[in-house]
Simulated scan of single mutants.
Amino acid sequence: MSQQRPGGQSGQPGAVPALPDLPEATVARLPEYLRALHNLAETGHDTVSSEGLAAAAGVNSAKLRKDLSHLGSYGTRGVGYDVALLIEQIEYVLGLTQRRAVALVGVGNLGHALAGYAGFATRGFRIAALFDADPSRVGEQISGLVVRHIEDLAEIAAAESIAIGVIATPAAAAQSVADQLVAAGVTSILNFAPCVLSVPEGVDVRKVDLAIELQILSFHEHRKASLTSLPATGPTGGLTALPGGLSATGTEEAVGT
């Protein structure tokens, strides 16, 4: 079967198609497929097989085919997927057919870097406004935008139709900023502060904590190192004592405690 282009139903020109009810895991993988497809398009590829796209996106091909079937996209036997059409389908489902305005709150080191990141513009977003509570930063110009005081958030969010907010403040300020974003009509928040936010129902929050990601990598490094250093046999049957008297399995008390 061939791919179906997003559009109105037959006999209903201009009708808006209903969005598919996608599993969260599928939604999380669609941006990876989109990134891979853009790379393929930029290198001159018009079509791609499911195996080729899966490899480029870092998933297995069966999972990719199932994900894309939710979009009504099955490719063409012997040809694969039309790269440009699949980009169009995924961008439609992700709501990227318009450049979404984003408010960035907190223009410290991380905020500066995010404000100057050119990749947002190529992926369907524009940083429409920058905010900070520090009077010494208000009025500073970053990437063509003037930093405004957080007190101006509601006015500018309404003027720019901002529905997405990015928090790049210290943890102590993040909840207050989230409250102000919600009060200004923002319904989606990307939180870089190392804390958990409390928001009303209907507001979506995604958390990015670089320290947590590094800690997870540290676990894997620790595990690899412990596996290579363990003796084949030992007095405890190969179990390693952990702090608190637990064995490496985490289920038994260490002998003698």
Rank of each mutant, 00 (worst) to 15 (best):
A172D: 11
Y33A: 05
D82T: 05
K66E: 13
H70V: 11
Q180S: 08
V255A: 14
G237W: 00
Q4Y: 08
G8T: 07
P231W: 09
L30V: 05
A15Q: 05
I156E: 06
L242A: 15
A157D: 05
G124P: 01
F131W: 11
E201C: 09
Q12N: 06
S218G: 13
A84Y: 01
D82C: 01
A159R: 12
R35Q: 10
A163E: 15
I87T: 11
T228D: 14
A101Y: 01
A57C: 01
D132K: 13
E201F: 05
G106C: 03
E140N: 13
A241L: 10
A173P: 02
S218P: 08
Q3N: 10
N109F: 11
K224Y: 15
P23V: 07
D21F: 04
E252G: 09
F131T: 09
M1G: 15
S50Q: 09
N60S: 04
A184P: 00
M1D: 14
I189P: 03
A133Q: 12
G185K: 08
R223S: 15
E201L: 05
A56L: 08
P31Y: 07
D132M: 14
T251I: 07
G14A: 08
G11C: 09
P231V: 11
A103L: 02
L110I: 14
V105Y: 13
A173I: 01
A57Y: 00
F120A: 05
S247C: 15
A168R: 02
V59Y: 00
S176V: 06
T47H: 10
V177E: 08
K66I: 06
A163C: 09
D46M: 14
H149A: 13
H112D: 02
G72A: 10
R65S: 13
E151R: 14
I212Y: 15
T97Y: 04
G238I: 03
E253G: 15
